[in-house]
Amino acid sequence: MNIFRLAGDLSHLAAIIILLIKIWKTRSCAGISGRSQVLFAIVFITRYLDLFTNFISAYNTAMKVFFLGSSIGTVYLMYLKFKATYDHNHDTFRIEFLLLPTALLSLVLNHEFSVMEILWTFSIYLESVAILPQLFMVSKTGEAESITSHYLFALGSYRGLYILNWIYRYYFEGFYDIIAIVAGCVQTILYCDFFYLYITKVLKGKKLQLPA
């Protein structure tokens, strides 16, 4: 463990907590893409199947349990409990265009052709594009509540911090995983225009408005 990975995990944890607070406090999931949340739940389910077979540390297990529970819980809140506030009309990104290519790619480009390894690879590829429905929804509505933009900033930062972690591990541990690194860079790059808007607008107290 290193400071970059810890900061990344905490940023990821913060993002999920901010989202849960937003939905619970406002009792609404307006502006949130349910499709992205479904993709995140798939990412965690396919990645943490080794939860009971591979004990790494109490921290690792606790975080996996929290990420699994919160992502499934968020889908429940969005599609069942606060269903009436879910914005179907703006959450229209075709997620099959994300699921199929990443599934095929994980069958072709992986470290080892085994069930667990392919599911892990699929989860890595899917996570890199899972935010697209959310970013698409923000561009369609043309704006986002400030708490939603804080959620996106924390979520985008987490994988950016993981890139620093991979650089650190390469130089100090000689460890690197090219699949995680490439997917992590793609994932972080997708947030670039949002990061620009967040830093130039939201941090100055303005609302996040996308040029229509």
């Binding site: 080794d50 790494i56 975080m63 996996k64 470290h111 080892e112 892990w120 993981y162 995983d177």
Partner: peptide
Amino acid sequence: SKAQEPKDEL
């Protein structure tokens, strides 16, 4: 390369 086991990152 053989998959890096065990995967210790979240």
